[in-house]
Design a protein around this nucleic acid. Structure first.
Lengths: 217, 217
DNA sequence: AAGTGGTCTAGACCACACC
DNA sequence: GTGTGGTCTAGACCACTTC
C-alpha cells in the first residue's frame, strides 16, 4: 500500500510475484497472499493467474453503503421512530412485475403502503410488495407492531439485492404524505431482494426533503 | 451461510467455535476461519474474541457502491464523454471550509467548475476545490484534456473519502447548465477526500434529471 | 508447457475479552 | 486465568491463462 501511494509502483505496473515478495519481507507466502488479496478487494490491485498482479489502472472507489433498517436510521438521528400502515391488500403481479422479477401470474403478493415517522414528522413513504409464495409466514406477523421492513430483515436472509438511488419531484400524493411542497426534490431508493432465484420483496422508499445518505471509504 | 438462511442458526445465536466446525466439516481451522471471516465481512456474523461468533442480530447489509470516474460512468451508458471547464480560479478557503476541513487560512486552493456531457447533453455539473498545498503537481497538468476528477484518481490513489448522497431542486443556474426545468429534482453527491490528515479535494456533483445510481449486493 | 495466483493443511503462538 | 478468534508459517496441490 505504501509503495502504491508512493508511486513507487505506478498504476498499471506489474508488481513482483507472491514468492518474491515473501522472500523480500521475510514472511510466508500465505501472508503475502492475504495482503495482496485484501488490497485487490478494495480495488487497489488487479490480479490474474499467470499474468501476475498489477496496480489497478482505474482505482474504482468502492464505498460500502450500509443499508439500515429505517427504525435504526431514524434512531441514529436521535429521533423517535414510529410508523403507520396506510394500506394493505393482496395483489396479483402486474405484467411488468411478472417480467422483471420472473413471477408467475398466479403468485400471491402482499402489498403494503407505509409511512415512517421521526418524532411525528414524516420521514419516508414506503410502497412494497412481498412474495407470499416465498414468505407465507409473514401473514402470521403483526405488521402494525414490527414493520415489514424489520420483519423481513430479521426473518428472511437474502442472497442477492439490487439497489437504485435516484431523485424525483414530489407528486401531489407524496407532497401531502410527506408534508412538503409539491415538486420538492425527494431522495428515492428502489430496492429488490432475492433468495437464490425467487424474488422476495421489492420496495420503493421516498424520503422526506432534507434526507441524505452518508458513507465513508 | 446455508444454516443462516435455513434459520437453523437464528439471528443472535452463538454458533460453534472454529475448532469444532473444522472437525465437523473435516477441514483445517484456517479454512473455517477464512469462511467465517468472509461472512463477518459481509455483515452476516458478529465475531468477538473469547465471546465467540454469533449470527448478526441486525444483518445490516453492506452494499458496495462503485464510484467510477465520470467518464467511465458515461461510457458505460454507451454515450460519448466530453467536458468543459467553465471556470477556474485560485481561492482562499472560506471560514466554513477552514473549519470543516481543517484548512489554514493561507492554504492555496484551486477552484474548478466543470460541465460533464454525454453525447453533447449535459450529464453532471461539478464544483470542486483542490488543496494545492498537498497536490501542487496538478498545476502542471492540462486539466482541459484530462479532467481533474480523473487526474486525481490516477495520481492520488490512496485516500480516505466521505460521500453524501442527497436530492435537491435545480437552482436557476443549474437548470440552465443542465438544460432542465427550474426546480427539477436532481441527484447530488458531495464527496471529500483526505490523505492522512490533509484534505485533498472536495467536490459537489449535480447530475442531470433521470440519473440513477445502481448497486448490487 | 509453464508460471502465476487460489486454496488448503497442520501446527503454532498471540491478543483480547470475559471470567 | 482461560477460551476465543486473529494471525502467521511451511509446505503442498490445484486451476487458470498465457505462452
Amino acid at each position: 500500500m505504501r509503495r502504491i501511494s508512493d508511486r513507487h509502483w505506478r498504476p498499471g505496473d506489474l508488481i513482483p510475484g507472491e514468492v518474491e515478495l515473501a522472500e523480500e519481507f521475510g514472511c510466508a507466502r500465505a501472508t503475502v497472499n492475504r495482503a495482496l488479496r485484501e488490497l485487490a478487494d478494495i480495488g487497489l490491485l488487479d490480479r490474474k493467474r499467470k499474468a501476475g498482479t498489477r496496480v489497478a489502472l482505474n482505482p474504482v472507489r468502492k464505498a460500502t453503503v450500509e443499508i439500515p433498517v429505517i427504525r435504526q436510521d431514524v434512531e441514529a438521528r436521535g429521533k423517535d421512530y414510529s410508523f403507520d400502515v396506510l394500506d394493505r391488500k393482496d395483489l396479483a403481479p402486474s405484467a411488468i412485475l411478472q417480467q422483471h422479477y420472473g413471477l408467475a401470474a398466479s403468485t400471491p403478493l402482499l402489498g403494503l403502503w407505509t409511512l415512517h415517522r421521526a418524532d411525528t414528522y414524516p420521514f419516508a413513504y414506503e410502497e412494497r410488495w412481498i412474495n407470499l409464495a416465498v414468505v407465507p409466514e409473514i401473514l402470521d406477523a403483526d405488521l402494525e407492531l414490527l414493520s415489514a421492513n424489520e420483519w423481513l430483515v430479521r426473518n428472511m436472509p437474502l442472497s442477492r439485492g439490487e439497489f437504485t438511488f435516484s431523485a424525483g419531484n414530489a407528486t401531489a400524493a407524496e407532497s401531502e404524505l410527506l408534508n412538503c411542497p409539491e415538486d420538492a426534490a425527494l431522495f428515492i431508493v428502489n430496492r429488490s431482494t432475492w433468495m437464490v432465484d425467487d424474488a422476495i420483496t421489492a420496495v420503493r422508499l421516498v424520503y422526506a426533503p432534507g434526507f441524505s445518505m452518508k458513507t465513508v471509504v
